[in-house]
């Protein structure tokens, strides 16, 4: 059995989630006795391939092509399809990055296969791998298994495995594989990468963050949280829907598409704890969650929790804080 791990880089910089997926693959390999082939694609990826070869894998493949310098779904699909057809892996593992979600399902479908996306765990049971993923935005988990013929495609959520636990000690010499790509096969034209105008607030430096989510219900309720933030000496921040609505500027959004913060205190108020939010704040030293739903996934990362109506708890908390000064 063979597992192909597809890593990700941009302009010679790793997406660190690649190593989390390597850890997942090593775990699967230990259980099943599979061998691991790691692959990196780009224009010139020789040094990255050498770095990969330091890990405990049986084989490292470097796919180099001018047309892979900038990511396109067509380029990556066509290149990896050729590699998969040649290498014949049973499983293909990816980190569940924005780039992978853009092309991996297409790659699988181009081979008539399916993909279990965004897995948070795996285990070996009754002779096969069981993949665990979230449903209902983390409120439930699901055990999913593959059916039909290999190859089987799976991607792993950021943070589900520890990249620093990927085992080193490999001795494979990277091997270059040639792929056949023509400019006319690539239908999308990638243009420049950019960030929005310079941010006025730097939430990464804030020692205390008071973050609100959709539980706040109306923009007219935001002063309630702002008053708490003032009293506790913190910055106000939010989950994505609040910024999507324009109730707070996007620079105050915490999560995978916003800021990643690690303050000493993070208060999550009326936030359910979807993974895309949690990846942006789980490094906080102390996390407090206020939510009316005792089963909200945010309590999975919280140190302290109050289950109840934020419209009662937030004013009470503001008052207690003011008293204790």
């Amino acid at each position: 059995m063979k597992i192909l791990v597809v890593t990700e880089q941009r302009d010679g910089q790793w997406n660190r989630a690649s190593f989390e997926t390597l850890t997942a693959a090593q775990q699967a390999a230990r259980a099943t006795g599979a061998s691991i082939t790691a692959v990196v694609a780009g224009k010139s990826v020789g040094s990255l391939a050498k770095e990969l070869a330091a890990y405990k894998v049986a084989e490292v493949l470097a796919i180099e092509h001018d047309l892979l310098e900038k990511y396109t779904p067509d380029g990556y699909t066509l290149a990896l399809k050729q590699v998969i057809t040649e290498a014949r892996p049973d499983f293909i593992f990816f980190p569940h990055t924005y780039q992978v979600r853009d092309f991996a399902p297409k790659l699988a479908a181009s081979l008539g296969r399916g993909m279990i996306a965004d897995c948070v765990g795996l285990r070996y049971e009754n002779g096969h791998l069981v993949f665990v993923r979230q449903m209902f935005q983390g409120k439930t988990a699901a055990d999913v298994i593959f059916q039909g013929d290999a190859p089987w495609f799976a991607s792993f959520q950021a943070g589900a495995f520890r990249g620093d636990q990927a085992e080193t000690g490999g001795s494979a010499a990277p091997r270059n594989v040639n792929v056949d790509l023509k400019p006319e096969q690539i239908r999308t034209k990638p243009l420049e990468l950019f960030r929005e105008a310079k941010q006025a607030v730097d939430l990464t430096q804030a020692p205390i963050i008071v973050a609100i989510g959709r539980g706040i219900k109306e923009p007219t309720n935001i002063p309630l949280a702002e008053k708490l933030a003032q009293t506790i000496g913190g910055e106000i921040a939010a989950s994505r829907p609040i910024c999507d609505e324009g109730w707070l500027p996007m620079e105050r959004q915490i999560g995978s598409s916003g800021q990643t913060v690690a303050p000493k205190l993070y208060l999550a108020i009326g936030i359910s704890g979807a993974i895309q939010h949690v990846v942006g704040m789980k490094g906080s030293r102390t996390i407090v969650a206020i939510n009316k739903d005792a089963n909200a996934p945010i309590f999975e990362v919280a140190d302290y929790g109050i289950v109840g109506d934020l419209f009662e708890i937030v004013p009470a908390l503001t008052e207690e804080l003011a008293k204790s000064k």
Partner: peptide
């Protein structure tokens, strides 16, 4: 089908959150 959901369930909590109870105050 290329895959099948075997079962869904409420995930087990791994972290001990200290839940503070009582009235809001």
């Amino acid at each position: 089908p290329t895959q099948r959901i075997e079962r869904i369930y409420v995930p087990k909590k791994t972290k001990k959150t200290e839940i503070l109870t009582g009235t809001a105050k």
